[in-house]
Design a protein around this nucleic acid. Sequence first.
RNA 1: GAGGGUAUAGCUCAGUUGGUUAGAGCGCUUGCUUGACAUGCAAGAGGUCGGUGGUUCGAGUCCACUUAUCCUCACCA
Length: 873
Amino acid sequence: MAKELAKQYDPKQVEDRIYQSWIEGDYFHAPCDPERKPYTIVIPPPNITGQLHMGHALDNTLQDILIRWRRMQGYDTLWLPGTDHASIATEAKIVDALRAEGIQKEDLGREGFLKRAWEWRAQYGGRIVEQLKKLGSSCDWARERFTLDEGCSKAVREVFNNLYEKGLIYRGERIINWCPHCKTSISDIEMEYEEKDGAFWHMAYPFTDGSGAIIVATTRPETIPGDTGVAVHPDDERYKDLIGKTVRIPVIGREIPIVADSYAKMDKGTGAVKITPAHDPNDFEVGLRCNLPILNVMTDDGYMNEKAGKYAGMTLAECRKAIVADFEAAGALVKIEPTKHEVGTCYRCHTSVEPRVSEQWFVKMQPLAEPAIKVVREGKTKFIPERFDKTYYNWMENIRDWCISRQLWWGHRIPAWYCADCGKITVSREDPTHCAHCGSANIEQDPDTLDTWFSSALWPFSTLGWPDKTPELAHYYPTSTLVTGYDIIFFWVARMIFSACEQMGEVPFDTVFIHGIVRDELGRKMSKSLGNGIDPLLVIDKYGADALRLTLATGNSPGNDMRFSEKKVEASRNFANKIWNAARFILMNLDGSEGAPAVPQAEALEDKWVLSLFNKLVKEVTDNLEKFELGIAVAKLYDFIWDIFCDWYIELAKIRLQQGGAPAAQAKSVLVYVLSETLKLLHPFMPFITEEIWQTLPHEGDTIMLSPWPQYNEALCFDEDEKHMDIIMEAIRAIRNRRAEMNVPPSRKAHVYIATEYKDVFRTATVFLQRLASAADVEIGDSFEIPGAVSIVTAHAKVYIPMGDLVDFEAERKRLSKEKEGAEKKLAGICAKLNNPGFLSKAPEAVVNVQREEEKKLREKIKMIEESLAALG
RNA sequence: GAGGGUAUAGCUCAGUUGGUUAGAGCGCUUGCUUGACAUGCAAGAGGUCGGUGGUUCGAGUCCACUUAUCCUCACCA
């Protein structure tokens, strides 16, 4: 007995159940079989604080498509999942939660705080993983990892030690970006620039010898208490004689020297620039070169400190106001010039970042960048699309040292211990009990933790067991494809590449498949503050995961942003319903006795036609997937299923299904074969519905997930039949078109006369015309004289339909004349080509032949139209 | 300041190594309770592919310039 399916596809009845069955079957588990070819993707680990957003949905849909496809191709496929501890984001969340309870993190102390953090992680850290499952992600959950788990922590220690031993990690006093809100240093790329209103304040610094004043400008008057010099260009004629003199900072009263440094540009401002080494990266460099003292006048949390004298205790903003007022009162304020400028802010909290001198840990980038550039240049790692390698080079070539220490508790604590006795540093893989230099037990570990990206940079190998030599590492590394958005190339991709080159001596992945970001309907970035984010889980709830996945995959071209709208999801949902109903129809016609589908022995024209097109589809979809053209691949599937299979083939198959017997059996075998093979091609994109239907069809095996990917089959190439079907379809469309124009209802059947060279083809197609073109009887011959009939001309046939009183002769004449005109115009274009000796001699033969064919067809057509016109009188 | 993206139908976007008449979805118009599906079927209207010039037998596709728009990085006394 055939299985009954509901009239409409309801993903809610299906998805969770199917996912559960996959889990129970352990189908996602990667066996680590050295005999089989591996295909590996490591997931970009989402933050444990995260909730699934459209960016995740896109990223993971693309990964799942690749993974499911390769799995069906027979690879030993590993998709390794996991999450990121997200030091700064998570710590901020927990601090907020504590504040709601009236607790400061310092009240709990480090141990107490970390206990809370782990509890938080236990409670919420798995949330996003559950959400990924809703999407259908076929990750090997048994191998799930966390950047702060034991193995990843061991890898972090190992790398830190390796780099320290090579002198590639150092501790030093440098200008860093300080977030006064998060109270931690952040790296250069963790800054975001925002345009803010500001001004140049021009201040007069008088010479101590009383001979006048030098004018300097600043955008940050609050740094004035930290000034330790004024720089002029060594070649600047205006100031040549002043070098070595001293000036007195107005109001503050401190004496500072005028120094020569080429950093001061002669054509900028007054040519003289005040130097605040503690609070500006450039000034810091000048300070080093000119031996200026470093005077830090700010506290950790955005206040002026005691070195700022009378301004101590003020916020930076208050201090700015006070200084400007004081300078004005003292007559030192020359002018204020309003301006807009880009101010660096913290990417987490958007507080203005204060550059300041601080003792931090750094990774020396130059030696790491060089090999990382080389491997991309040599194509060992390829970016898709290629243009992103430029972005990558640009960044890598201009890279500065990476500040890796953070004044946070949640993260990998820096494995460095300071000796209270000898003052030296012990860096170690194991927690030491004594100073490595003097043996003193009086040592204390650095309180800081590492940038969260330090551990994610090791993800492709730390998750496979490194630094241990595991079978997984041997088999699955280097990984195959990394799928991520372009917004994360610097944060993550680049750092994985240089880390892998350094630690593994090998690239982390063959290919970096870059996608864009998902925007809202109006093209705006989805963001919390705009409130324009669309929750993928709600979309899944309403339309199904398959519809969401199809929407994200459709029209996705590598590296480009896409707009998301509910309309698009509706279209995807409709497609799912279309397949569902096609399957429902086919199942209605089965009696349950059928065996698993095999390649049918095709004899009927329509069978050979659909098989031939299907066979081409197999090749094209596979080729597109190989080239990461996922959007193109799925568009082809969409077109084939809807236009070819449903709108034409199923309609044609109905004829034989109604006949019963052998013809029906033939049709069924093709229907079932093409449907189930097409479902396989579609499975990576729409895993749930394809599994659900496949299970109800006759099949072999436990799951479509592990069924073999369809192969191109030479035996299914039927070029001749394709051509013949085209001729028929062309005639059917032309007849429908005519009838529609004349407003003839489908119920009114008409005699059809066909004059054609392709008599055998049309004889076969008589039933098609009856079914799809409202034909009553069909007569086929060389030519007909049917007075008063509507005539329809295609390239291969002339069709007459006697319509009696429905025919408006005048309109017919007009229409035919117009058609003739069009054909003649086209013919002229083709003749021009064929008369062009350059075209004939240089264009490939196949292209020329196509034009010749076209010319022949058009001449034929024009002749037939002329005949029809003559018949009209 | 440097680098890059995008510009194709009313809207959102595909268009693969240059090759017949440039495609889809949505929207629009017309007709259809055709026994899988109105989340459907059939038919149709709608585009000088941002502009100029070039390469080529042939350009939406390649090159140069240009306009508009977006992004990234850097700088900003």
